[in-house]
């Protein structure tokens, strides 16, 4: 993946300090520490759900760190004529701001964007994670849930940050409530028909009105009822996975690499776990990036370790997201009381 090129000497320096006993990192973290993560949901008022995530912002100057902006947007799609899929679908796109990768040419940037999009989309659009409230009318209308992620700055470990931001934005997503409307061919019911009868030939008027309704008996549409909140939360929001990238530097591995550390670890193992409540943990994606080899036995222990790290990350994120919900609800309630 795209990293700033570092010199051989620098690489050896970083590698040997990581392998030293005790291991040393430039920012004083231990091998398994994450940098401080700042997360805020509901940052884009025009989106259905959004989150801004910063990993490793320096507290004094307020700058630096990997910064991701994520937003979800819902659109109605027609299943029969449009590109919709029964039960809704999810499309995930990653855009990289050129300011995050100032050293890359625009073609390289496109490639990187494509790579990241593939990883995110393949993982998040998997049927096992599909939320069941994306359908509106069976075989007719469905929601298209598009998840857009923007990498505003990359100071290493963009993938973990992307998954976390995606999870936060999806957590924040509210699906508008819909109410299906059925046209019923009841005779002599509506005031509309009465009006038509009064107008012209009574028999013909009644018939034509009846006919159109008969045709539409099967057809149905939906409406958006007025309700106090923006809608219900996305189904299965505890299923959205978290990703941990293990940077392998035999015999050890370390987490949450900064950009220069990313450049000095030859192999990265990407593990994405989902921790649904009341169900066993599942591994959603696994990728080995970089050149190198792994023994099978190593793999097993790495997987077990990875699961542990991911669970910690998951729990921390979950707590933060619940906090955010409370914070925003309090704010909304405050606003309501003000009025």
């Amino acid at each position: 993946m795209a990293t700033a090129s570092i010199s051989k000497a620098e690489r050896t320096y970083i590698q040997s300090s990581l392998q030293a006993n005790p291991p040393l990192r430039a920012d004083g973290r231990s091998l398994l520490d994450y940098r401080t993560v700042f997360l805020e949901t509901g940052v884009a008022p025009l989106a259905n759900g959004s989150a801004r995530l910063n990993m490793g912002k320096s507290p004094q100057e307020g700058g630096g760190g990997t910064e991701i902006l994520a937003a979800t947007k819902l659109e109605v799609e027609d299943v029969e004529t449009g590109g919709g899929v029964d039960g809704g679908r999810l499309v995930c796109t990653v855009t990289c701001s050129p300011s995050a990768y100032p050293q890359l040419s625009s073609n390289a940037l496109d490639e990187l964007q494509y790579d990241l999009t593939t990883v995110l989309h393949q993982t998040l659009a998997h049927p096992a994670l599909h939320p069941c409230n994306l359908g509106i009318l069976p075989r007719k209308k469905a929601w298209l849930l598009s998840v857009d992620l923007v990498v505003l700055a990359d100071a290493g470990n963009a993938l973990d940050a992307l998954f976390m931001a995606a999870r936060a934005a999806l957590w924040d997503t509210k699906v508008p409530r819909t109410r299906p409307i059925q046209y019923q061919g009841r005779r002599g019911g509506g005031a509309n028909e009465d009006a038509m009868e009064a107008e012209g030939d009574p028999a013909a008027g009644a018939r034509s009105a009846f006919d159109t309704r008969d045709m539409k008996r099967d057809a149905a549409d939906f409406e958006l009822p007025d309700y106090w909140d923006e809608g219900e939360v996305l189904d299965g929001r505890d299923r959205w996975p978290v990703c941990v990238t293990l940077n392998l530097l035999p015999p050890t591995h370390f987490l949450d690499a900064t950009s220069s550390e990313e450049g000095s670890a030859p192999v990265k193992l990407l593990l994405t776990f989902s921790f649904p409540s009341n169900q066993p943990t599942s591994l959603q994606a696994m990728r080995m990036i970089g050149s190198g080899e792994l023994l099978l036995a190593q793999m097993k222990s790495l997987l077990a370790d990875g699961e542990k790290y991911a669970r910690d990350l998951f729990q921390a994120l979950e707590a933060k997201l619940r906090d955010e919900d409370v914070r925003r609800n309090v704010k909304a309630r405050g606003k309501f009381a003000m009025r």
Binding site: A44, L46, A47, S50, L69, A71, K73, E75, T93, T95, S97, P98, S106, S146, D148, V150
Partner: peptide
């Protein structure tokens, strides 16, 4: 100068090519 308009910046989601 490079301008990038985020897809969720407007009411309607629209992806604009560069």
């Amino acid at each position: 100068v490079e301008v990038n308009v985020l897809p969720f910046s407007t009411g309607e989601r629209r992806r604009r090519a560069r």
